[in-house]
């Protein structure tokens, strides 16, 4: 069991968990800033961005993907403003229209372009390819200390681990101004804090997490993890520090339980095939939020 688990299940479990936590972290701040929709937006805009980046560069390396996603995000912001100004349409509606349109354009682009050489297709965009991120060189737990085997770890794992570390360190380092500017922007400005830069910083961290996670686990998990774990966590406590801890716990729980249930649940239930891990992880995160809304200690009256 050990060798099979380490080679086949450990990498996707770790990748799913790290991706979920990397998205949940900035999601806490997006939620408190009433910008939860931005997380949704970013995860949609990433698709056309990376497809165009792939068409231009011919690779799916991280840097061009990030650049593509960033360009798409800029385009999205410009489109939203244009729709609001020219069409006199309310901001939320303008956002919704922009992101779904860009995402749909990304799907069309993907269908019409030759991406057969790389792992980039519509299904991948939605569900990711969590189950295929295996560690072929692993022979058992001992491989975790074997440099040769470690070198063959799925690159997605290294990437998402690095991004999670960057997001976590940035939030921890700028904790005080971040919390202050999120709670009371006017007061923060009166102290001379660069609140616009802080807001942009959080959106940038969210975009970084979205791009890295999108690659490994697809947009469904990204969208769910920006919102569900932080929203559930808010209902568990009245302290921001603890809310962050709860959101990480909920994200990890969703990823692990979702992956295991998707892989074994249908078999336990008598069906022959497993279901999408990404879909199950997102569903579990929704169920945790539903539970929190019904039973958590700090629900609002």
């Amino acid at each position: 069991m050990g060798s099979e688990f380490v080679a086949l299940s450990l990498p996707p479990l770790l990748i799913g968990t790290l991706a979920a936590m990397a998205c949940a972290l900035p999601g806490n701040f997006l939620l408190l800033r009433r910008q939860a929709l931005i997380g949704d937006a970013i995860s949609h805009v990433v698709l056309p961005g990376i497809v165009v980046a792939f068409l231009v560069t011919g690779t799916i390396a991280t840097l061009p993907m990030l650049a593509g996603a960033a360009c798409a995000a800029l385009l999205a912001v410009a489109m939203i403003e244009a729709i609001r100004r020219l069409g006199r349409i309310e901001a939320g509606a303008a956002m919704g229209v922009t992101f779904t349109t860009l995402f749909a354009a990304g799907v069309l682009l993907l269908e019409r372009s030759d991406t057969s050489s790389v792992h980039l297709d519509v299904e991948h965009a939605l569900y990711g390819n969590l189950e295929s991120l295996i560690w072929l060189d692993a022979t058992g737990w001992a491989s975790l200390t074997d440099p040769a085997a470690l070198a063959a770890l799925p690159p997605e794992l290294i990437r998402i681990a690095a991004v999670f570390a960057v997001v976590a360190i940035a939030i921890a380092a700028f904790w005080r101004p971040l919390k202050l500017a999120t709670f009371d922007e006017g007061f923060a400005q009166s102290l001379g804090l660069p609140t616009a830069a802080i807001g942009l910083g959080i959106v940038t961290l969210a975009a970084l997490a979205a791009v890295a996670a999108f690659d490994a686990v697809g947009s469904i998990i990204v969208i769910a993890m920006f919102i569900c774990p932080p929203a559930g966590a808010r209902l568990m406590t009245n302290r921001l520090e603890r809310q962050i801890a709860w959101s990480l716990l909920f994200a990890a729980l969703s990823a692990i339980a979702g992956y295991v249930i998707a892989g074994y649940g249908p078999i336990w239930a008598g069906f022959s095939a497993s279901v999408s891990a990404a879909g199950m992880i997102a569903t579990i995160s929704g169920l945790i939020l539903a539970w929190a809304a019904l039973a958590a200690p700090h629900r609002r009256a």
Partner: peptide
């Protein structure tokens, strides 16, 4: 500077002492 009370979200997950400590920023 003391902003208008209604300008912030009082559902924000923090405690009274934390808010006062923000004045020491």
């Amino acid at each position: 500077y003391v902003p208008q009370r209604a300008s912030v979200d009082w559902d924000f997950p923090t405690q009274v002492l934390d808010v006062v400590i923000m004045g020491l920023y």
